[in-house]
């Protein structure tokens, strides 16, 4: 396994028991991702995109094969080690922004840093930096219910990026956004990818998202159907 890769998957399979038999969600997955990649898993519903993101995000472990993230074998991590890996190295962005409704924008972004026991001054600076990246410093004191869809997803990006993770996993991040907002948040993520060299891995079937990807992995029935390097347009339309 090449240690230059931030994510390395070898013969990964995932089975779920169903009655006396089993359902295979992933099979023969062999993938490597380098630092700073802007890639996407593409495929219809049930093709295994989310299962694969869950394994890379150390929320699940493979039934067979080896999944290595930042040199750590996901299958051998304890619950606590998995949580630490997510806490320090992995950011998640969801299709519904999943902001905590009782907390302000600032507090939502700050939460990830609270788990790292950082000082208040450090947290404040990091949160304001993250909100500045996504252009929302003026909404720091607002509750999520006062935000538009695009603003909510930008907050989610800030929350994922505030701890400066090595990897960001984005599961259908444009599902609830219109075209203008989709391009807006994708451009923001692309900028962060360039500026911070963060590895982005998307799960999507949205053509607008695919326009930004540099590498597209097509999944079909849990197997890799195609793994293609594409040249993303600098300003897709």
């Amino acid at each position: 396994m090449n240690s230059d890769y931030v994510i390395s998957l070898r013969n990964v399979a995932k089975h779920y028991p169903i009655g006396d038999g089993r359902f295979t969600a992933l099979q023969d997955i062999n993938l490597d991702f380098s630092q700073g990649e802007f890639s996407g898993l593409v495929g219809p519903s049930g093709s295994g995109k989310t299962t694969l993101l869950n394994i890379i995000g150390s929320l699940d472990s493979p039934s067979e094969g080896t999944a290595s993230v930042l040199g750590k074998n996901i299958a051998t991590l304890s619950h606590k080690e998995s949580a630490q890996l997510r806490n320090r190295e992995i950011g998640f962005i969801f299709q519904v922004y999943n902001l905590l409704p009782v907390y302000t924008v600032f507090e939502n972004v700050e939460f990830a840093l609270l788990l790292q026991n950082r000082s208040e001054a450090e947290r404040k600076k990091a949160v304001m930096d993250a909100l500045e990246w996504v252009g929302l410093t003026h909404l720091a004191d607002k509750k999520p219910s006062k935000l538009s869809g695009g603003e909510g997803q930008r907050v989610a990006i800030a929350r994922a990026m505030v701890k400066r993770p090595s990897i960001v996993l984005a599961d259908e991040p444009s599902a609830n956004l219109d075209a203008r907002n989709t391009h807006g948040i994708l451009q923001t993520m692309k900028d962060l990818n360039r500026e911070l060299k963060t590895t982005f891995l998307f799960s999507t079937h949205d053509e607008k998202v695919m326009q930004y990807l540099e590498r597209i992995i097509h999944l079909d029935d849990g197997r890799i159907a195609q793994d293609e390097i594409v040249h993303a347009q600098s300003t897709p339309t």
Binding site: G57, L59, H79, K80, S82, A83, Q84, L85, R86, N87, R88, I90, F92, F94, N98, L100, F111, A112, L115, R159
Partner: peptide, 16 residues
């Protein structure tokens, strides 16, 4: 549940 899921994803352990 949603909140717990977010907290898990952000790196909080189930024990925490």
């Amino acid at each position: 549940y949603q909140e717990f899921g977010i907290r898990l994803a952000l790196g909080e352990s189930k024990g925490a």
